[in-house]
């Protein structure tokens, strides 16, 4: 039994990176906050570079709680969408060059979102990773955690419930 020749690594990487770019740069609010995504294989880390406009308490100073919430929610939505798209990216069914801002896959809709603020957000870069707890046909549940300088000292965690986008028929 001989296996099919694997695709060249640059072809695979290009397809994954283009799909992620279409997903992450197509949302104006994600751009407004300056959130980017770092990809290692299928693992995504959301990155929120520090900017003075993200401050909520200028006296401490500390990141705005709303920024932290928005960052976690964005990490959760993009993480979930990415996991839904992954199989199609790998099979080559999803052609990134045809993904434009207008025909992006519909994003999951947030039903509820809970944030726990564990310590104050420092005026530094922040990182977040989402974990898909359950991804069903109609609903999904995602846990998300954010940290700054020290991975073992998260400054916020969240749990989100989503209604899944309907598959185009």
């Amino acid at each position: 039994m001989s296996r099919a020749t694997p695709e060249p690594v640059q072809v695979v990487k290009h397809r994954r990176d283009e799909a992620l770019k279409a997903l992450a740069t197509g949302v104006p609010y994600v751009q407004f906050l300056g959130i980017t995504f770092d990809r290692r294989g299928d693992e995504l880390t959301a990155v929120l570079p520090y900017d003075p406009k993200l401050i909520g308490n200028p006296m401490l100073p500390a990141l705005h709680g709303g920024v932290t919430a928005a960052f976690l929610e964005t990490a959760a939505i993009i993480g979930l969408s990415w996991s839904i798209m992954w199989a199609d990216i790998e099979s080559g069914e999803l052609v990134p060059d045809k993904l434009t801002h207008d025909n992006l896959p519909r994003l999951p809709k947030t039903v509820s979102f809970t944030v726990d603020y564990l310590r104050s957000g420092l005026p530094r870069d922040a990182y977040a990773r989402a974990q898909i707890v359950r991804s069903g046909r109609r609903y999904a549940t995602v846990d998300v955690e954010a940290w700054q300088d020290n991975r073992l000292r998260p400054f916020a965690q969240g749990k989100a419930h989503f209604v899944m986008p309907r598959k185009p028929t």
Partner: peptide, 9 residues
């Protein structure tokens, strides 16, 4: 400062 916040959309 916020301790926790739950939002229903």
């Amino acid at each position: 400062a916020t301790i926790d916040l739950r939002i229903d959309y």
